[in-house]
């Protein structure tokens, strides 16, 4: 079992709901301090978005953030060098699109991530049918692969994704790109379908933007992922203090 999964299973065994905030690497010069602030405020793992020019699964907030990070010259090398300076041991999960790893080299990417303290990867445009090369490379570097399950995923495919997922399985609450939030998601139904076939920790993401939504989602899952709403705080000029307050408010809500 990969380190990330061992860690997240142990966390679940304590009864604590996981809180996973998402950051766009390189969005601001002090983004590393934002990650540290989130860890300090009670994040159990942190998703690190590696900027890609064409973020097809992301809504306007993360698109804007990614564009800014790219304009600031962020690369896989530069962000990994910065991650290595992190003063916290919070587990890191890379989130990006496949072309970044494909272009850098799969084995080289996995090695780079591992040496920067990254324990998992989410690559939403890499379907399991095409993932074997990446899974081989990532496995040799103890990188857990996390797959997304959507409300529309048919049962057979859901089973396959749940069984392939390592660390946790990502339950998308909505048929939407990141950042869109409506009244009621289908997180509960997706989580129940995953639990019917696997005992892997299951976290809900996509469209969780308020502490209340996070609490609701955490009641039916093992954890929640908060992305666009937090990125928006930073786009609005918020610094480490604002990030800490934001994450702390979600922490209180789901505890």
């Amino acid at each position: 079992m990969k380190s990330l999964e061992t860690h997240l299973r142990a966390l679940r065994a304590t009864g604590r709901k996981a809180l996973v905030p998402y950051f766009v690497a390189g969005l601001t010069p002090d983004w590393i301090q934002h990650v540290e602030a989130a860890a300090h405020a009670g994040a159990d793992a942190v998703e690190i978005g590696i900027p890609f020019s064409d973020p097809m699964m992301d809504g306007v907030v993360i698109q804007e953030a990614v564009l800014r990070a790219l304009e600031a010259g962020t690369t896989l090398d530069s962000l990994c060098a910065q991650l290595a300076t992190l003063s916290t041991s919070v587990p890191l999960i890379a989130m990006t699109y496949y072309n970044i790893f494909h272009h850098y080299g799969l084995e080289r990417s996995a090695g780079k991530l591992q040496s920067s303290g990254v324990l998992g990867a989410i690559v939403p445009d890499l379907p399991p049918e095409e993932a074997s090369d990446w899974m081989k490379a990532s496995t040799s570097h103890d990188i857990a692969n996390i797959f997304l399950v959507a409300p529309s995923t048919p049962p057979q495919r859901l089973g396959r994704l749940a069984r392939l997922s390592e660390g946790f399985c990502y339950a998308s609450a909505r048929m939407a790109v990141t950042g869109k939030s409506s009244e009621s998601g289908e997180g509960r139904r997706v989580v129940e379908s995953i639990r019917a076939v696997s005992d892997i920790p299951t976290y809900i993401g996509i469209g969780i933007s308020t502490p209340d939504q996070a609490r609701e989602a955490s009641e039916v899952s093992d954890g929640v992922i908060v992305g666009s709403a937090l990125v928006q705080v930073i786009l609005n000029g918020g610094g480490a203090d604002e990030v800490e307050n934001f994450v702390a408010s979600f922490r209180r809500s789901i505890d």
């Binding site: 890609f52 699109y97 072309n99 272009h103």
Partner: peptide, 16 residues
């Protein structure tokens, strides 16, 4: 490279 759900030839910079 890989874009828009296909693997093909793409104009891309040194970082993909």
């Amino acid at each position: 490279g890989v874009l828009h759900g296909m693997k093909s030839l793409l104009m891309q910079d040194e970082f993909g």
